[in-house]
């Protein structure tokens, strides 16, 4: 059984595009990254999965349950962390956590205590006194305290300091090791590259690439760094060239013999050839007029 499976999921807001024809499968137990810049459709996809918006077309399942008809059953098994966290003013953190548990008809107090300790969250404070990061922590505890089978996290680290981010990802890895599936939507590529096994890239409402993070970064293109002088202007397959004081760097997706031949004729003092990181892959898919989808 897949944790998330969609087929042709589409959402329009009137005539405005939300998402188009998204077919995506996330296996149970996976730690999956969903990458795209603001406005690409990440949140719309998540909202459609959780029943907050009704899809214009297509189907979807979460943990084998239909997103159109089994909304409550799905939500009982899902922990959701929204990108923007807002709570009712005047309420204390402990009241928010209790309310969330009450809406789930569960006693989550022991789990909530453990999570609050780990995230150093003061439950006696009122929500309007909390910083952005602390409000995010409240939302994290609400998403995790009922020990869901699937965690859907939309831009989860916004507002968290680096130490807290580390603790948060440690928590996610623990939950993932215990069998929970994690679906992590983010525009922070290093987050996805470091923590996720699989990922998909969304662009203008459509999935443009997907697979294992390892395979995604292995696109055939190499990051080439040269120290010295080399005239490679006519060589096909060179992109994103940056000239530095003592050499140049570029992405190369042409044939390796042609590159090596050109380099032997140049005055090269040092050479590095490496895999590009996910950010470069991402930018590659977002290059205007690249023609790739």
């Amino acid at each position: 059984m897949d944790a998330i499976k969609t087929a042709g999921l589409t959402k329009y807001y009137g005539s405005a595009r939300g998402i188009e024809d998204i077919s995506l499968t996330v296996e149970q137990g996976d730690l999956f990254g969903f990458i795209g810049p603001n406005g690409a459709g990440k949140s719309t996809f998540i909202r459609a999965l959780l029943g907050l918006v009704r899809p214009s077309a297509g189907r979807g399942q979460i943990l084998g349950l239909d997103i159109g008809t089994d909304r409550e059953k799905i939500l009982a098994k899902v922990g959701y962390l929204p990108s923007e966290t807002a709570f009712w003013p005047g309420m204390r953190v402990r009241d928010i956590l209790k309310l969330s548990a009450g809406l789930r008809k569960k006693n989550c107090a022991p789990a909530a205590d453990r999570l609050c300790q780990r995230l150093q969250l003061d439950v006696s404070r009122k929500v309007e006194q909390l910083s952005l990061g602390s409000r995010k922590k409240v939302a994290i505890v609400c998403a995790l305290q009922h020990e869901p089978e699937l965690l859907i996290l939309d831009e989860p680290t916004g507002g968290l300091d680096p130490l807290m981010q580390r603790e948060f990802f440690a928590l996610l890895r623990e939950r993932n090791a215990q069998g929970a599936t994690v679906f992590l939507s983010s525009h922070i590529l290093s987050e996805v590259q470091h923590h996720c096994a699989h990922a998909a890239i969304i662009r203008q409402g459509r999935i443009v690439a997907g697979g294992s993070v390892e395979a995604l970064v292995r696109t055939g293109a190499k990051r080439v760094g040269i120290r010295g002088r080399a005239d490679l202007g006519d060589l096909p397959g060179i992109r994103d060239r940056q000239v530095t004081a003592d050499g140049s760097e570029f992405l190369y997706s042409g044939g390796m013999p042609a590159l090596l031949k050109a380099l032997t004729e140049a005055n090269v003092q040092d050479l590095t050839i490496s895999e590009p990181d996910l950010e470069e892959v991402f930018l590659h898919y977002y290059e205007e007029g690249s023609g790739r989808r």
Partner: peptide
């Protein structure tokens, strides 16, 4: 208006 709908409606109640 207060952006609390997303929190409330992602809990398992119709």
């Amino acid at each position: 208006r207060d952006h609390t709908a997303e929190f409330l409606l992602t809990h398992p109640l119709p």
